[in-house]
């Protein structure tokens, strides 16, 4: 199984990594992982307008990393931790691929003339 096929795919995955490329958005995500936050509460934490914070939250929402729910007059931000775990898994798959290659390099170095395939 290729993790990407079961989890993050193509354009969606690109949105995840673009969303995570910004330090403010990573900070919003970290805070949201510790509990539900309101957009207005977040806006008080950063030296930027509520509109700017809303835009950051919208990028995170577009990437499927958080979702917004309305509670009275407040917009609440909740995380989708599962998506992040899947992104992490894809890098882990590459690590596994390289560990296999490094093991085989060890074999090549130990047996310069070949015969290590069988």
């Amino acid at each position: 199984m290729v993790v990407g096929r079961a989890g993050l795919q193509g354009e969606h995955a690109d949105r995840v990594f673009k969303a995570l490329a910004d330090p403010t958005r990573r900070d919003v995500l970290r805070r949201a992982m510790q509990g539900t936050l309101s957009v207005s509460g977040l806006a008080r934490l950063y030296p930027m307008s509520t509109t700017a914070v809303q835009k950051h939250v919208a990028v995170l929402e577009d990437a499927g990393l958080v979702h917004l729910t309305r509670h009275g007059r407040e917009q609440l931000v909740k995380t989708e931790i599962d998506t992040i775990a899947k992104a992490q898994a894809l890098l882990a798959e590459f690590e596994l691929l390289w560990r296999g290659r490094l093991d085989r390099i060890g074999d090549v170095l130990a047996n310069p003339l070949g015969g290590d395939r069988s």
Binding site: V2, V3, G4, Q9, G10, A13, V16, F94
Partner: peptide
């Protein structure tokens, strides 16, 4: 460069 690349190369 992108997740699409990762998936392709992983394949």
């Amino acid at each position: 460069a992108s997740i699409a690349d990762m998936e392709q190369l992983l394949g």
